[in-house]
């Protein structure tokens, strides 16, 4: 999720509503890219067949990407990007707090590093959602629409595969389903302060666990992976 969300945020570079926001979003993109690098490097080591973090980012097919769908959705307007960042930030804040206790030392160490950055991402997104929601009639409407539009994609973050369940039972990964009540409470609190209405549970889009994505991931990868696909092993 860190890699794909990072990619989307970096698309805001030079398109932010104000210069300071441009800096903030690209700062976050960099944090997430760093986190993705650490996680994929470790994934390559665990896999044990010589894949580097770059192989896993640039040479992996679409169906083998298991990021939650919400990360790959197009940026939309600023409100939509902030709604997404709030949903993901609140989820990651809970996830990485739990991951600090992982029996796997490397994962716990990466979590220790990442959690400090995630708190910034979450607070920044919450600030904007409150400011826009509790702003003018127009900003309120746009923010509410964004909150509603992204909602269907939030359930996918909490889905678990049988492998993840096993790892969670072994104390290595996190039982994400158990994070849902706290996530709901946190989102509810921000939306209440933003004078926005929390969407009611309904149909949730899913598929990322089996690598079934929205049409948008393919477009991201065709751009992100272009260089390594066209010129394998190119480096500078």
């Amino acid at each position: 999720m860190a890699l794909i969300h990072s990619y989307r945020l970096s698309e805001w570079c030079s398109n932010g509503p104000i210069l300071e926001e441009d800096l903030a979003l690209t700062n976050f993109a960099l944090d997430m890219l760093g986190r993705a690098q650490a996680l994929l490097k470790y994934a390559g080591e665990v896999e044990g067949i010589g894949h580097t973090e770059d192989d896993l980012a640039y040479r992996r097919g679409e169906r083998r990407f298991l990021n939650p769908l919400i990360a790959e959705l197009p940026n939309g307007d600023f409100a939509q990007s902030m709604a997404r960042m709030l949903y993901i930030g609140a989820f990651e804040n809970l996830l990485y707090t739990e991951l600090l206790k992982s029996k796997d030392e490397t994962l716990a160490a990466i979590a220790g590093k990442a959690i400090k950055e995630i708190r910034y991402h979450l607070s920044h997104a919450a600030d904007w959602v409150i400011r826009l929601g509790d702003g003018t009639a127009e900003s309120h409407d746009k923010m509410q629409r964004a909150i509603n539009d992204m909602w269907t994609y939030t359930g996918d973050m909490f889905d678990m595969s049988s492998e993840e369940t096993k790892l969670a039972n072994d104390g290595i990964a996190v039982n994400t389903i158990s994070l849902l009540p706290s996530w709901n409470a946190q989102i509810g609190k921000v939306l209440a302060e933003a004078t926005l209405t929390m969407p009611t549970d309904g149909y949730m889009q899913s598929g990322s666990l089996s690598g079934v994505h929205t049409e948008h991931l393919g477009h991201i990868l065709s751009e992100m992976q272009y260089l390594q696909r066209a010129y394998p092993d190119a480096s500078w």
């Binding site: 960099l30 944090d31 890219l33 760093g34 986190r35 690098q37 650490a38 990466i110 590093k113 950055e117």
Partner: peptide, 8 residues
Amino acid sequence: TPTYTGCP
């Protein structure tokens, strides 16, 4: 140790 994970 990096200061920030993505420190270039």
